[in-house]
Every structure is written in C-alpha cells, then in structure tokens.
Design a protein around this nucleic acid. Sequence first.
DNA 1: GAGTGGTCTAGACCACGCC
DNA 2: GCGTGGTCTAGACCACTCA
Lengths: 253, 253
Amino acid sequence: MVSRYDRRPAFEQVADALRERITGGEFAPGDQLPSYSQIEAEYGVAVTTAQRAIRTLKAEGLVEGHAGKGNYVRQERKIVTLSASFVKPDVNGTWTTWRAAAAEQGLKGSQSIDEATQVAPPSEVADALRLPDGELAVVRRRTMYLNGEPVQLADSYFPVGIAEGTALARAERIPRGASALMAELGHRVVECDEFVAARMPTAREVQALSIKEGVPVIEIFRVSKAAEGRPVECEIFVLSADRHRLKYSLPGC
Amino acid sequence: MVSRYDRRPAFEQVADALRERITGGEFAPGDQLPSYSQIEAEYGVAVTTAQRAIRTLKAEGLVEGHAGKGNYVRQERKIVTLSASFVKPDVNGTWTTWRAAAAEQGLKGSQSIDEATQVAPPSEVADALRLPDGELAVVRRRTMYLNGEPVQLADSYFPVGIAEGTALARAERIPRGASALMAELGHRVVECDEFVAARMPTAREVQALSIKEGVPVIEIFRVSKAAEGRPVECEIFVLSADRHRLKYSLPGC
DNA sequence: GAGTGGTCTAGACCACGCC
DNA sequence: GCGTGGTCTAGACCACTCA
C-alpha cells in the first residue's frame, strides 16, 4: 500500500516495492510480475501509475514486457568476455580473434562489412589520426554477430593516403585480415591506446543492435599506432552492455 | 505535427523530432527546450504525451529538467580519463594515483573510508579470491570525490587471513597506501585482471553518486594477484559514466 | 501570480497471446 | 472473448522559479 504521508512519488514507492520483491528472490529471473490490475488493487494506485512504476524498472534493465502476456523479470543474458589481449598487433586481426573469442564460449561469431567509403571523420577521429582540418578519411563499417544476432558495431577509420586503392577501401572481406594487410603496406601496428566509455544508445544503435529498454552501450575508441607513434587506424566499437564484458590483463613488471 | 498514419507512437515521433532539433544544432547544450504547452500546440498532442516524449529524452541522457524553470539540453560534462596504468603494482596505491590523475586534469581528488568490516562476499568475489563456501571476507568501502562531489564507489575485498588485525580491516587511512602495506605483509601484487562492464545504476548508487536520469555506470571488477597467481585482493569500482572514461594503453611487443 | 515541470487519476482504445 | 501490455487524452493538483 502506498503511503500518502511519504513524500516520495507513488510510482517510485511501487517501483521500490517491486524491485525489493525481485532482488529479495520472490520473483526469480524469468518469472512473471503481477499484472497492472493486480498492482492497482494491491497498492491502491491507478493503472497508469502502476505502468509508470513498471516503466522505471524497465529503464533500469530489470524488467521486460511482452504485450498480451505480461511483464517479466529479465533473464541474465549470456555474457561474452572480450579479452583486450586481442589487440596484440603481432598475429591476429580483430575479426579472427572475435570469432575465436565467441567460439571459446560456444557461440558462433560472424561479421558483415556494411560500407567502405570516404567521409569527413568525427573530430575525435581526425584528432587521433592527426588529420588536417577538413581532410577526409576512409571509413569501413562492420557489424559483428553472435549466433546471427547483431551485437556490435565496428567502424574503422584510416587516413586516405593509407587506405586508398587498397582492399581496406572496398566493402569486401580481406582474406588474411586487415592487420596483416596493414603490415604489408608498411604500417605495422605496434601500440594501441584504448578509451572505454559507457552511455545510452542512440536511436540508430537501438535499431541496429536491437537493444532493449534500459540497456546502455559500451563504446571503445581505439587508436592504433605504427612505429614512432604514428597513428594509422582509429576504431570505434559500440557494444550492447548486457551481452559484453571486457577483460584487460595487466601483467606485473 | 504528429502523423496519425505513422504507426509509431506519438510520444516517440515527438521525441524523435526534438532529438533531431537538438542534434541538428537548433538547441545547443544548455539551451532551454520548448515548454510542454508549446510542444502541445506545436505537435498537436496532449500534455502528458509531450511529457512522455521529454521523459524518453531524459532516459537517453540528452535532456535534464528543472521544476519551475524548464527542460534543458544537458551540458557536456568534464570527463576524467583514468589511466589503467595506475594498477602497476610497483609504486603507487590506487588512492595516490587517483589523486594524481585528478590533479593532472585540474581537479581535486579526495576519498572517504566509509566502512571496514567482515561480510559474506558476493559470489563472484568469493570465486575470484578462491574462498571456500560460506567463508567471510574483509571489505573496505571507500567513496572517491572530485572537487568534493562523490563520483566513484570502491569496495576492496580481502581474505580474512590477509587483512585481519591489520590496518586494512580498520576504517582509517593507511599512511603509505594499501599497496605498500600489502607488500610488507608478504602479498606483493604482481598481476591484475580487470573486467569492465556497464549497466544502469541501482537505487543506492543513484543516491550515493547523485547520478542523473539516463546515465549508466561503469563497473570495474579487478582481481589482484601475488606471485604464482595467488589472488590477494578483489576490488569493485562503480563510476558514473558521464564523468569517467577509462584509458588502457597496450604497448607493442 | 503566472508559467513551468512533476505527478496522479479515470477512462478510453489498440494489438497481442491464449483458450 | 478475455486478460494482458502499450498508448493516448483531459483534467487536476503540487512545488518550484521568477518577475
């Protein structure tokens, strides 16, 4: 029952009560929550208030709704741990190790190359690649899939001088991997900086990765450098946070 | 104007339109958005629908509301880049380098030690520390501040055998740093594994870190190991994602 | 006091799942 | 056909800001 003497909003009181019943174990992952009419009766609020309470739980990623069936406690998703060791520039490209990391966890990794074209790069990319103002870059956009579901967007940016005329600038698979090709072209990557951030997805990302309500994305901004710190590639990865986890191993010195 | 022939919900059409006007530059960060009555008139929807549209933009972290004043495009927040090099086990503890990283960006870092006690650790922590079932651990809970604002929660878990009777188990500052103390106690850290995830904050975290609507948190799970891979400490960091960015540098081999 | 955001309600309609 | 979630509306009240 909602207390009228509590100054907190009713929908929040109801949300808190339900959240507690979930975390307390009364409702396990996969269980159906009380229907709106039940909440209405049980807590003495209007339907729309009950709906708002449920909506805040959805925004927290705790609950998901299915029209005509009910609201359910969200299942724990399988989590793929991506090891950052894959950036080691020596042997593998991102793609090879992406597939390997997925296979390790019993999942099938695949990718599509959606586009390869010249664009005006975002300013952070231009900065990272040390491109003069207004200069274009080659972008190569890929989507990564796990068991056929799109889970990651990967955009690679190259200075035009590096990618132009090579397979990097065409929307087709690169047989031995982009890493190997870069090395052959004289841009062997020897060092990476990786910046990790989290935020709510854009509408485009929600669409492309079928991200559920209340699930953030992890954004990785990676700058790859050849000898003497010369930046040769800049990648932006966007991963849905409920399916990924990053692993960084920092060995002792 | 909302189209009745578009099957997408009206609140979403309005949200999209406003989002576009924001990203298109019509409303710059800090600008006030149209009031609900203006939206009502302009798009031909009910007030509550306008409110719902604005609420979805808030959930995306794009907009923030101030009762009695208006809704505003959220300002870009200063972002603190935390370099993961700080885990290098040789010289510094987390605290020293936290303060240094903040100072580098012109901010004042501080911390409070909120609690040091024995608890039943979360199962991931028990696993990471290889504790037998049901065994307690010493937890040391800290809050980190930037310019006086709480921005990060840091919980360190130790096996009881390591921490009991030492300063680690007391809620007081450790003069030369926890790292140094660990080393003196014969548990010099030589290796770390770090797992990075993102999710929406819990109610407690919203409260403790005054996290705004629509802002996720970054959670770092760090396992520190002494010689021969023996785990000696397990830390959980929770950072509000709008103020932090992690940096990992991966040197070539 | 006028305008603003924040909340709440009652009542309505739709689409979907299931029997 | 009934119960479910999802959406929309009109109208109400409160707290806050600002002139």
